[in-house]
């Protein structure tokens, strides 16, 4: 048996949880995607023997990726308003 108030509360709770959900995995996603490109560059360097070049390329790619993730989040937040 739920009163209308409780029903409303659970709806509000759900919507607020959904609202924060965009930002919950953000830190881990940014960190891991940056590390992914850097480590990929490092691994490719050790395979091909082009020592700092691919690592630096990985760093650049990772930074662009971080910016892209942030842009995506900001665009979604703008769309919701």
């Amino acid at each position: 048996m739920t009163t209308p108030d409780e029903e409303k509360f659970s709806d509000q709770f759900g919507s607020s949880v959904r609202a924060i959900s965009d930002y919950m995995g953000l830190g881990l996603q940014i960190a891991i995607s940056f590390a992914f490109f850097v480590l990929l560059g490092y691994w490719a360097d050790s395979k091909l023997g082009t020592s700092p070049l691919l690592l630096l390329a990985g760093v650049v790619l990772g930074m662009v990726g971080m910016a892209l993730v942030l842009m995506k989040v900001v665009r979604q937040a703008n769309k919701k308003k």
């Binding site: 995995g25 881990l28 996603q29 891991i32 995607s33 490109f37 790619l61 990726g65 892209l68 665009r75």
Partner: peptide
Amino acid sequence: TAGTHWSLWIIMVPIEIIGQFTKPFA
């Protein structure tokens, strides 16, 4: 692809795939 330009897909697609795995990891 998260709605980005096609020239950025090579960066965005790996990041989005990683994003699918970070949630269960957390």
